[in-house]
Design a protein around this nucleic acid. Structure first.
Lengths: 187, 187
DNA sequence: AGATAAACGCAAATCCTTTGCGTTAGGCCG
DNA sequence: CGGCCTAACGCAAAGGATTTGCGTTTATCT
């Protein structure tokens, strides 16, 4: 039921969307997500509940929208001088972000809404773009990179898997081992 | 709100639980999961809705309970004679099962309920047990196995990651490559 | 067998969700 | 620039879902 494609880009629609997103962020800060409802968000945002029902359909869709926006990286991955260093630093950062309580909640929101949405895919695109950046950077240095797909399989997937199913991020040594193994496979 | 620990094991409680679980499976077979509600399940199971609300609290908890039961493997992984063969066959089977439409829905149910439950962990335990079996089997043959943790990182996590975030399982060649890489790392 | 409390059924009250209709205000074209 | 078209919204009523108090059933323990 997400209608981003046919949304009018400017004016009132945009204001409503911004107001609603901000309301969600504000409510997430002071309530358990299980308590949050459309009427609550509507009051906070100054709109009527029916607007939310028509535009987002389900609460999980709206929460996923907000989560994807929060998961979008604001800065490119830091440049440490080597692919190994870049990967280690970036993987640690992602692990911290996604394993935090709000991070885990955002991951779940994004996956729960996936039935009818594309948020999970978009979330995955962010990771892929970052890995593309690191790979390109490595190539410019003359280093060899195993490539984005291998890095997703070897580094990202294990980290995300452990966060989702075990509720805890792998420790620093484990992340380094994953990076080593991913870089070791090809060379 | 899951109270399995303090549930009375036998008698009426057990009958209600069985009836409710069966009702959920029946409803999942003929309705979209978005349409399913507690009152609907209650009617199908012959109980009152308040029983469901008190015992499971949220619909996602009940759906996750049913999903975990369905994801529990009924047979041990097939023995092909080599660890590589075992891993390939088992990974293919898991990929098929989890990537199917009901499989994806079950995965999402399990993860969505994780906020207050332990279903995701239990689901992960099944995979770990199967990998333990394969590792033990390999050791009895005199083969070397990289170990359960490495196999989770190298084979299971990438498969599950791609199913969850991309909505599609890796193809057969990709799975074989994952197994090869996992077995190649140590030796 | 009797006591105890968990689990359930029932029903009322509350809240969420859906939906029809009128109004507002972007976007577009003459 | 002015007017048309319709997406998006607000409002309110109707329909379900959820919660909760209370009495009853029944599993468990002594």
């Amino acid at each position: 039921m997400v209608r981003k494609e046919q949304l009018r880009p400017g004016g009132r629609s945009a204001r409503v969307q911004a107001s609603v997103h901000q309301a969600v962020r504000a409510l997430l800060a002071r309530h358990d997500r299980a308590e949050i409802t459309f009427p609550m968000i509507a009051t906070e945002a100054g709109v009527t509940p029916s607007t939310l029902y028509r535009r987002w359909g389900e609460l999980s869709e709206l929460l996923a929208d907000v989560a994807v926006e929060r998961l979008r990286p604001d800065t490119p991955p830091t440049d440490t001088g080597t692919l190994r260093g870049d990967l280690e630093a970036w993987a640690e950062q992602i692990a911290d972000e996604y394993a935090s309580t709000p991070g885990q909640a955002m991951l779940r929101d994004v996956l729960a809404a996936n039935a009818s949405g594309e948020q999970a895919f978009q979330c995955c695109v962010y990771l892929r773009e970052a890995l593309d950046t690191l790979t390109l950077r490595a190539q410019l240095r003359g280093e060899f990179s195993p490539g984005t797909e291998s890095l997703i399989d070897g580094v990202m997937a294990p980290i995300i898997y452990r966060i989702l199913f075990l509720g805890a991020r792998p420790d620093e040594a484990h992340v380094k081992a994953l990076v080593s193994k991913a870089l070791h496979g090809l060379a």
